[in-house]
């Protein structure tokens, strides 16, 4: 039987105190306990990047990371990208303008991977973007419009 652990964390700017079983994954915690279903799960094996969220600004796989491991950390999910007034993040805007998704299942993970990249490197080359996306699979778009959207968002953010 898994032991229960108490965690304190910030999710999308809100502080959260919770008690979770030690074997609960971050994706289960976000989706089932907090109702933040924007984070999607596909492989559950830390291979496809679908479940990517940011922990203290770095991309992590919510499907295998344990909820207990975010204790003391700051988590950003797709629900936290837009402003509280509904104003979209420049990346979200660029994804809309460039047709950077179809089914949308990879989109939350793509957006967060890109968010971390642009925070680190405001002017990434196409090659850097492709390398950064290596761990995020998209089966629909062929990646081309995703790379374009990230470049456009980077331009927008530099202005």
């Amino acid at each position: 039987m898994a032991t229960e652990l108490s965690i304190e964390t910030v999710v999308n700017g809100q502080s959260v105190h919770a008690t979770v079983p030690s074997n609960r994954t971050l994706s289960q915690f976000l989706r089932d306990d907090l109702g933040l279903t924007g984070t999607k799960v596909s492989c559950a094996l830390e291979l496809c990047g679908t479940c990517t969220v940011l922990l203290d600004g770095s991309p992590v796989s919510a499907c295998t990371l344990l909820a207990a491991e975010i204790d003391g950390g700051d988590v950003l999910t797709v629900e936290g990208l837009a402003g509280s007034d509904g104003e979209l993040d420049p990346l979200q805007r660029a994804f809309l303008d460039h047709g950077a998704f179809q089914c949308g299942f990879c989109t939350p993970g793509m957006l967060l991977t890109a968010k971390a990249l642009l925070a680190r490197d405001p002017d990434p080359s196409e090659e850097t973007i492709r390398e950064e996306l290596h761990g995020n699979i998209c089966r629909c778009t062929g990646y081309v419009p995703i790379v374009e959207a990230i470049q456009a968002a980077a331009r927008e953010l530099r202005r």
């Binding site: 279903t37 924007g38 797709v78 979200q92 949308g104």
Partner: peptide, 10 residues
Amino acid sequence: RAKVTGTACY
């Protein structure tokens, strides 16, 4: 909008 904000229901 639903797909980039995570509200789209799958």
